[in-house]
Structures are given as C-alpha cells and as structure tokens.
C-alpha cells in the first residue's frame, strides 16, 4: 500500500525530487568551479540538508508578481531560493562575483533579492534576518495582505540578540511569519550544546508565546507537511510560528573547513540518512516515479547546472570604477583624486 501523498500529485512529488537534485547538482558544480578557480570567496555545502529548504518552500505560495509569500533563505537553503524563482545562472554569477550578477558583484553567493518573486537574501549576521522578516510580515498584517513570510537561520543565529529581539517583536505584533531553524548541529566548529542549554529549539517557542514543532529535516515530505500546516495556521491569523529542522551538516562550515572536530563515525551514520537517497527509494517504492523518470531528472538537473555555469563563466567581472555607484540613491560618491588623469586634490 502506498504512503499518503499529502495532496500532492505525481508531478508534484517528482517536482520535489527535481529540486533536491538541482540543489545538489548546483553545489557539486560549484565545487568543480572552485577547483577551477572560478568561485570568489567561500563555498558552503548543504549536503544532507537539501530536503529542509525544498520541503518548506514547496509548501508556500510562490508567485512572480509580488503578491506571494516572502522567503528569506540561507546559504544552506538554496533549494528554497530556486523554488522561489531564483535563477540558476544568477546563483553561479553570484558565486563568481560577476558584473552580470543580481548584485553586480557587490555581494556574495545567495545574498541576493527579488521582492517581486518574493525572496530576500540574508546578510552574514543571520539573526538580523528575523528582524527584517518581522517587519516585512508586519507590513502584510497592517495592510491586510494575504501573505506570510518564512525565514531560515541556523542553530548559531538562535543565540544572537537580533534573533531574540526580532522574534519577540514578531510574536507581540502577531506577524504572519514562520521561523525555520536549520539545526544541523554545528555553528562553524561550535556544537549546538555550546550554543544553548535546551535540548530542542522548540523549547524556545513557548518563551515567546508561539507554537513550535520539530521535524526530521532529511524527510522532504515531513518538512512539506509541517510547513504546510504551519502556513495554514499563520495565514489565518495565528501569529508567528517556529519549526526546527533536525539533520546534520555533513561537510565543513565551508570548503576550507576539514571538519576534523567531528567524529567521522557520526558523519558516516548520517550518510545513511541522505535526503536524496531516502526520497528516491520512496518514490520508487510507492510508484510515484519510475526509474527512468528519476534518471531523466538527475540528468536534466546536472545538465542545467553545467550549461548555466558555463554561461556564467563567460561573463565579465564588474569594472573596478563601478565601486562608487549606488551607495545612495541620489548622492554621488567621488572617485579617489589619485585615480584621475591629472591628479589634483583640489579638483576631486
């Protein structure tokens, strides 16, 4: 007998797999690009966490006209970004710091924005994004818009003052917002036990007067189900809600981190809970997809990433002198006088 499909059709069930494969293929492509010297700055894998981002984003209203739900993703939630319409080629452009990237080379990796499509990239101090999403969803509530927001952050960001202040504000103002804590058990080299005394982040919810639920973050359908239920509640005026995704960061904080502070046996154990492997066998077992269909998805996503990355490689970096533009909407930032053709400080 088949498992329940949570209202998803065959196409939807396969969509989820497609997003999982796309996330992993994109990151594996980045590893290759990094070895080739194309990636500017750090590269952060979400290996083992892909299902959290994909399941959650799939449960939301994704529209391209500024009327859908709002997402704030993280570096390990690229699957959500793609589901909200973030273009694969922009992802590679961002990682390569190209002048054609959405931030024109000003900002890194997934730190980009499209308010029409409904996603706001994070800044590096991630706790801040709780405050930002609180304000975004406050605007939905005061204007009576039928929209909600979802904000991802790690177990580490849960320790910041900004997290507390943003969450407290949202709870008091009954902002229609879902917090998703990606508990991958590590904040760089700091284990969760050194970030908090509670055994589950869901214990923090009641302290703010909001509901909280933990879910297996390697199970894409379980995450989809939890977020869908939370979204229903939040959308109908239930205020702010929290969901904890439990899984494990199977790679270092970034590629430069060999993660030698983690017991290899633990990593090997989590390899058996790989979200793509788990879901793939489930799709076959329940006959939600055939082997041929899955192979096609795997090959297509691989090829999409290859093509997008190749295209991005060919694109130019920004001109250095572009650095002066856009600090303000209306105030001109001067070029250094020493860079002018006839240097003279009185003419700067």
């Amino acid at each position: 007998m088949s498992e329940p499909t949570l209202g998803l059709e065959r196409a939807g069930l396969q969509d989820l797999y497609r997003s999982l494969c796309l996330t992993r293929a994109a990151e594996e492509r980045l590893e290759l690009l990094q070895k080739q010297g194309h990636v500017t700055g750090g590269l952060y894998r979400s290996l083992g966490q892909e299902a959290g981002a994909v399941g959650a984003a799939y449960a939301l209203r994704r529209r391209a006209d500024g009327t859908g739900d709002m997402l704030c993703h993280t570096i390990r939630a690229a699957g959500a970004l793609f589901l909200f319409g973030g273009e694969l080629i922009d992802y590679f452009r961002q990682y390569m710091a190209k002048g054609t990237s959405p931030t024109r080379g000003r900002e890194a990796n997934v730190h980009w924005f499209d308010f029409e499509k409904g996603f706001v990239g994070p800044v590096s101090p991630l706790g801040t994004m709780i405050e930002i999403m609180a304000g975004m969803t406050l605007s939905f509530r005061v204007r009576g818009e039928d929209r909600i927001g979802i904000v991802f952050y790690g177990d580490g960001a849960s320790s910041t003052g900004a997290w507390h202040e943003g969450l407290n504000f949202a709870a008091v103002q009954r902002c229609p917002m879902i917090l998703i804590v990606e508990n991958n058990q590590w904040a760089f080299s700091t284990p969760t036990s050194k970030n908090t005394r509670v055994s589950s982040f869901t214990e923090k919810g009641p302290g703010y007067g909001i509901g909280a639920e933990a879910v297996d973050g390697t199970d894409v359908l379980a995450v989809f189900d939890a977020v869908r239920r939370a979204a229903l509640q939040v959308r109908s005026g239930g205020g702010t809600h929290m969901i904890e995704l439990n899984y494990f960061r199977r790679k270092g904080h970034a590629q430069h981190d060999p993660q030698d502070y983690v017991d290899p046996a633990v990593i090997r154990a989590w390899e058996k809970k790989d979200p793509l492997d788990l879901y793939r066998s489930r799709l076959l077992r329940n006959e939600w997809a055939s082997e041929d269909e899955l192979v096609a998805i795997e090959e297509e996503t691989f090829e999409e990433c290859r093509v997008a990355a190749e295209a991005a490689i060919a694109e130019p970096y920004p001109e250095g002198a572009e650095a002066v533009s856009g600090v303000y909407t209306d105030v001109h930032t001067p070029h250094p006088w020493t860079r002018s053709s006839s240097p003279d400080p009185t003419l700067a």
Binding site: T128, E131, G135, M136, S139, N168
Partner: peptide, 27 residues
Amino acid sequence: NRVIDTPIAEGGFTGAAAGAAHMGLRP
C-alpha cells in the same frame, strides 16, 4: 497600525522597520 508601541529592543524594531521599508512602507 500606524503608531506602533514597541518592545524595549531598539535593534529589533529598527530591523523590523527595515523589513517594512523593503515592502514599500516608510517607517
């Protein structure tokens, strides 16, 4: 909805103002 008494948390409500500003409000 237009005159909001906040918790005592300048970082939190200034950040929320920034989020609202993204959505077209002028806090």
